[in-house]
Design a protein around this nucleic acid. Structure first.
Lengths: 212, 212
DNA sequence: CCTACCGATCGGTAGG
DNA sequence: CCTACCGATCGGTAGG
């Protein structure tokens, strides 16, 4: 029913031009979707960027929405791994330590999968694909909020701010890095991860000076 | 050349239907632009939402892009006021205090003008109007980064994270609240402003427990 | 001559 | 992978 599937294990002999495969088209599509926005990007734009005609793209891809779905699945799969692996209860590991680990690993995912995560964070729910992605995102948010609540309950986080609010602000800060982080820029991902965890957990005031 | 302008000071006698004025149409447009995205919102959608025909909208408004420009100007004017007023150097007011004031007043602007600020934060630069808005936004970002640098230089903020990075993360956290804040929701704007300043400046770890 | 619209349709372009 | 198209809808405007 569709030409999409796992990449052929052995590079088969091909007829015609070498051309693009689906992952290559997806990468370019994600880049354009981020640059101009999903709706403002036409399949013609994508064809021009690739040096193909519009119909040629449909040889590799069934729809524009499929490209979006593929991108969102990438981001969601990665974030789901982080949250399930790092937030799961383990003997001798406090909620506080697990939260710090989730923050650090989230930063790594945002850096390594920035284009698809950026798309995920901009989803508005305008189609079935987007609504499904929003549902998975909500599941992640709930797990993160529960982890923050655990850390508050165990006494390691401030309890004068509602945990749900803490969770939103903490991951709001984490997620904001997709707006400006550039892999070839001034900051290594480790520098960013350190800065975020330092600011989030210990604040940005010098401790001698944080009384107003 | 256009019927747009300041509202008539005295409500003159009208013939025909009472109808909408430009500010009312703008409010509805902003709401739709946020719900579905600017590009995904057609003037037909806006007309349907208002109970008008499409041509009727063009009686009040010259173009779809003008509506976007109006919204972005609202957000930018408000944020510019905050940054110029609260970040300006004054005798006896430290950069640290001014930064806290900017954060607090920014939260108030985000809450009071959430719809237009949300649009501003999603601009991609797809048109002249959007490019001009991005330029003004960059000006704001530069002023904020300078204020953070001043606070670091005066010794009140941690100096082990680059000031430019601190600025991005701090206002990334502030800006993230447009993604979830609801004026009729659980949190008063003062609660949110307190939570953000507390977390940002003093961190979310309890001070007895913030050593890992 | 005005404000406040309507029914119909313009030239182009969208995804497919 | 192209030329040649489709059904529909886009933002915007005509006359009345």
């Amino acid at each position: 029913m569709t030409t999409i599937g796992p990449a052929e294990p052995a590079p088969r002999r091909r007829r015609g031009r070498p051309g693009y495969d689906q992952p290559a088209i997806l990468r370019t599509a994600i880049e354009l979707f981020n640059r101009r926005g999903y709706d403002a990007t036409s399949m013609g734009d994508l064809a021009r960027e690739l040096g193909l005609t519009k119909p040629a793209i449909y040889h590799h891809v069934t729809s524009k929405e499929q490209l979006l779905g593929e991108a969102l699945a990438d981001a969601l799969d990665e974030l789901t791994s982080v949250v399930t692996e790092a937030s799961g209860e383990r003997d001798g590991v406090s909620a506080y330590q697990r939260l710090r680990e989730v923050v650090r690993r989230s930063v790594e995912v945002l850096v390594a999968h920035q284009p698809s995560v950026t798309l995920l964070l901009r989803v508005r729910g305008n189609s079935e694909v987007e609504l499904a992605a929003l549902e998975r995102r909500r599941w992640l948010d709930d797990r993160l909020a529960a982890l923050v609540a655990d850390a508050v309950a165990e006494g390691s986080l401030r309890d004068n701010v509602p945990p749900a609010l803490v969770s939103r602000l903490l991951f709001g800060m984490v997620n904001s890095l997709v707006e400006w982080y550039r892999p070839d820029g001034a900051y290594d991902h480790a520098v960013v991860a350190d800065a975020i965890t330092a600011i989030a957990f210990d604040g940005l005031a010098r401790h001698e000076a944080h009384q107003v």
